[in-house]
Amino acid sequence: MGALIWLASYPKSGNTWMRSFLHNLFRNSHQPVNINEIDDFCLGGSVAQWYRRYTSTPLREMSDEETARYRMQVQRDFTTVFPDSVFVKTHNYLGERNGVPLHNMEVTAGAIYIVRNPLDVVLSMMPHYDISLEEAIIALANEDAGTVRTESHAPEVYGSWSTNVRTWTRTPSPGLLVVRYEDMLDKPRKTFKQVATFLGVRPSPDRLERAIRFSSFKVLKAQEEKAGFKERPKVSRNFFREGKRDQWREKLTPDQVRQIISVHHEQMERFGYIPHDYRDAVPAPSAASA
């Protein structure tokens, strides 16, 4: 029986990329792993089949309280899938819902949290959820943001971008690795080697380079175009869109940039996401906090 390693992030922050890298790293194949087999390697934390072990009530008909009642045991069941570490994807913030933790820390060994500049996150949210830019900016700040209950998935609770980031990263721990999406792009060799080292893996340079190459945006996008990707939302034309950084410079107005910074400046400051030319958008400290 293994222990859980959470692959956590706010949506559209690089979680699928990280899962693909790890899948390719551990499989160590000489061709890219099929992206539609990614859930064979990394479990989805909200998949309904795990809840069906404990109740005949369809997931769609269950209340939040009922879901919470089974969540801790469902996550304990995850540990039986592999004899060693069990990777589990989550977009939930690190906290409680209905008085029950969203993550069972008793069976958790650690977590990798991926953080991405919210100025770019909103641009990826638009086509993914088929919403406007203004709707994406509002959703980014919504403390009740999450997914709705469906027949196949239990609801997830994201919280706002700031809450998601803060709850996962505020307490340093040897069992936690925080990775910036931008470093995955700009310094892939250094960043992904750090991920491997955190997991106790010492890959050869060739194996590391191959895993990075096989999980590149170009490869993932080509796979989706050829065979589709089952995690793509029905409202979205494609899951893998552009995979770039700093697109906000061309696509957000100064007012939109300032709006996002004014709400999320504390966590943006921590991760170096406030542009020098927008420092004036950071609210002045209040007298109470001074």
Rank of each mutant, 00 (worst) to 15 (best):
R202M: 14
F271Y: 15
N164R: 03
Y10L: 04
S152I: 11
T253Y: 02
R69A: 05
R180I: 08
P11K: 02
H91M: 10
Q49L: 09
F26I: 14
N164S: 08
V74P: 02
I38D: 00
V219N: 02
T108M: 08
E37C: 06
I38E: 01
N34R: 02
G175M: 07
R149N: 08
F26E: 10
S124F: 10
N34P: 00
A139V: 03
F78Q: 09
H265R: 07
Y70S: 05
A68G: 08
A111D: 07
V157K: 08
H128M: 01
P205Y: 08
K244G: 03
D40P: 00
R202F: 14
S9L: 14
F214P: 01
Y54P: 00
A139M: 10
L102Q: 03
D277W: 05
Q223S: 12
P172C: 06
S162A: 15
L43Q: 06
P11M: 03
M1F: 05
E143H: 12
K244F: 04
S286I: 03
V257N: 07
K234I: 15
S85N: 15
W248F: 06
L4S: 09
H91C: 11
E266H: 15
R27S: 10
M18E: 08
N164Q: 05
R19G: 15
T197H: 13
H264W: 11
S262L: 13
I5D: 07
R97K: 07
A288K: 06
R97E: 05
L252T: 04
S63M: 08
R189N: 07
E266D: 07
F214N: 05
H153D: 05
G243W: 01
P127R: 14
K251W: 07
H23G: 09
D186T: 12
F41R: 00
S152E: 10
G2S: 08
A222Q: 07
K12F: 06
V282Y: 15
Y158G: 00
E143M: 08
D246W: 08
Y93T: 01
D183I: 12
A111E: 09
E250V: 02
E156A: 08
N36C: 05
W161R: 04
L43H: 04
R76Q: 15
R180Y: 12
L102R: 02
R69I: 01
Y278T: 10
A139D: 14
G175Y: 06
E135F: 11
T191C: 06
F271T: 13
N34K: 00
V235G: 03
S216K: 09
A139H: 11
N36Y: 06
L220T: 01
P205D: 07
A48W: 01
F198H: 13
V100C: 14
E231S: 13
I274G: 06
R71G: 00
W6S: 01
R170D: 13
V282S: 13
H276L: 01
R97Y: 10
G99L: 09
R53S: 06
K234S: 13
V86L: 10
N104P: 03
R71D: 04
